[in-house]
Design a protein around this nucleic acid. Structure first.
Lengths: 190, 190
DNA sequence: ACCTGAACACCGTTCAAGT
DNA sequence: ACCTGAACACCGTTCAAGT
């Protein structure tokens, strides 16, 4: 009986952790100071000791997400040497992560400045990374970048369809395979 | 001096019109009852005569957008007979509309139930329409649908990149042409 | 029929006061 | 150093009262 219930003193990480959980469960709006305080068994006044305002909380929360999530994805896809065969593998990993509640909630909330900026940074890193793979597969700089942007756009659009209009999506492994094949098609070479 | 400034009595359409304008300018949050009332020179009480609550306003606003926007796009792309050559033309029209402030604001606000539902319905219609074009181009039902979903996903993702990380996008007509070419590549046929 | 004005709830923010 | 409690502003919502 120690790490579970109402501790007396809180850290900033307690607030960002609660925020991430709230966002995954109820969208960005759920990360409101008063509800979070209730969830943590504290008062709003306590919050304002750790953060200057709600915006600061969201910024710090997105920083955390950025580090944990992006680094994980990039690490997972850059462990082995870059090669044409790795392309399909990477895209499978990327397209396979579609549907995580937190990521869907964040994509749906790019309206918000903190979320929008973080998603933009993460997206840029993804594009860079995928462009590197296309380069390693033999494309020149410009073609690699165009193909990478198209691949990431396809991924983002698919995630949005999954979130906003799931009934439109074809189902099953055949569709995933189709998407993966598309990722390779995006590169304009015979 | 009649149709311009502070009329005495307002209609529901005045409120939805003001809402659309506010959303395009400042995002969904800008469509708040009090600011809209100020913009229209009325009180919040007046709003609640025309609508039961803010949600009802957003629903009706999205209905308006749905009719005006989608019908326009579909009409513009279904006037001529469906044919393989029309595919590139349609995709050019669709990809060309990327960047309209209102559409970007709505895509960024799919978080909201009213906006999310409307965007979902519009997206489904777009998929149906594009699938019809792929069928007319010779694909069978399943392949046409997969290709249509992929094309729309590519469109949505591109719009999201334009909104959230514009600096990532390659520039100019060459890139638009690349996208258009991709739309055709999405259909798996030699 | 359409609108005003005052009221209340909820959440963001501040701050004096407590431990 | 960290937190409570009361206060105030802003926006959503209600409603009695006006025209």
């Amino acid at each position: 009986m120690d790490g579970s219930s109402p501790r007396r003193r809180l850290t900033a990480d307690d607030w960002t952790g609660a925020a991430l959980q709230a966002i995954a469960e109820g969208g960005l709006d759920a990360a409101a100071v008063e509800p979070l305080a209730k969830r943590l068994g504290a008062t709003k006044g306590s919050f304002y000791w750790h953060f200057s305002n709600r915006r600061a909380l969201l910024d710090r929360t997105m920083e955390t997400w950025e580090k944990v999530h992006t680094d994980a994805v990039i690490a997972a896809t850059s462990a082995a040497p870059a090669a044409p065969e790795r392309l399909a593998e990477l895209l499978e990993i990327v397209f396979g992560s579609i549907g995580e509640p937190l990521e869907l909630a964040l994509l749906a909330a790019v309206d918000d400045p903190s979320v929008g900026a973080a998603v933009a940074r993460v997206t840029e890193r993804r594009v860079d990374h995928v462009a590197g793979l296309y380069r390693a597969a033999g494309l020149d700089e410009a073609a690699a970048r165009s193909s990478a942007v198209a691949a990431v756009a396809l991924y983002l659009g698919h995630a949005q369809l999954a979130a906003a209009a799931p009934s439109t999506l074809p189902e099953g492994a055949a569709w995933t395979a189709h998407l993966t094949r598309l990722g390779e098609l995006l590169a304009p070479r015979p």
